[in-house]
Amino acid sequence: MLLPKFEFHEPKTVDEACQMMAEYGASAMVLAGGTDLLVNMKKKLLSPQHLIAISRIEELKKVDSSPFGLKIGACLSVSDTASSDAIGKKWGALSAGAKALGSPQIRNLATIGGNLGTASSAADLPPSLMAYGARVVLKSSARERTLPLEEFFTGSKRTTLADDEMIYEIQIDEPAPYSGAGYESLGVRSCQDIKIVNVASFITLDGPGGIIKSARIVMGCVGPTHLRAHSAEKILVGEKPGEAIFARAGELAMQDATPRGAAFSRASAGYKKDMVGVLTVRTLGTAWKEATGERN
């Protein structure tokens, strides 16, 4: 399996990368970890004329934590995401997603930005990032814009990214007191698996033993892109957390899910729906534990 021909560029800075993007436009693609892009090129699904490799730009590998939250460079590897103390301490569901992705070798190459840019609804990082309310910062030579991750995805394998734009940074706010999150994915194998369903849940309580102030539930593999389980979230707000209300949220999440019953997909639509219910309950359980745990 040979790669199609292309020109290789390795800019030293973000600005330089942006200039190249501006110059080559649609004929160029950004090469970060390459674990999706190079595979798709080998399979002749993509054949960009220019590859702009950004994985060596140090600025893109930062993890800046402040009292307000985190700024993560787009090229932070998935394994560094998984092992980062700063991330693991307060954003455990993101660590869990990173640990669930691919294999050790893939995690060492793959980047957080790449996992978002690919815009696969089976991807492991978007659910927790969306549940945490993360934003992406996009850069081009002309402008920089910041938007909620939720608005970044526009469809299956589609994003708002313009031809000359690249993902620069991911921002996550410091979680409010008494909040917690959970991530669960279901695959056939224990690792190296493209998921059948994945779910992340995030809840904030109004105090120890209090009611749920806000909730976000994000589901993967059950729509063209990651979906919010809005009706499940709604029913949780104002309620005391507990098994019964979580079960009800699970049922509503199943209704919020819109899996396609494609004949050749990894699982049937019915099974995916049912599993959304199971994983929603489980992730809410994890989130509740964290919200009432020692972390606050």
């Binding site: 294999s103 194998r189 224990s190 690792c191 190296q192 698996d193 493209i194 004949a263 050749f264």
Partner: peptide, 21 residues
């Protein structure tokens, strides 16, 4: 698929056990 073409002709989608399985 319904044309007799391979749907999972790779070791990602053809799932043989890993060490963790």
């Amino acid at each position: 698929d319904d044309k007799g073409r391979l749907l999972n002709g790779d070791l990602a989608e053809y799932k043989m056990p890993t060490a963790l399985d």
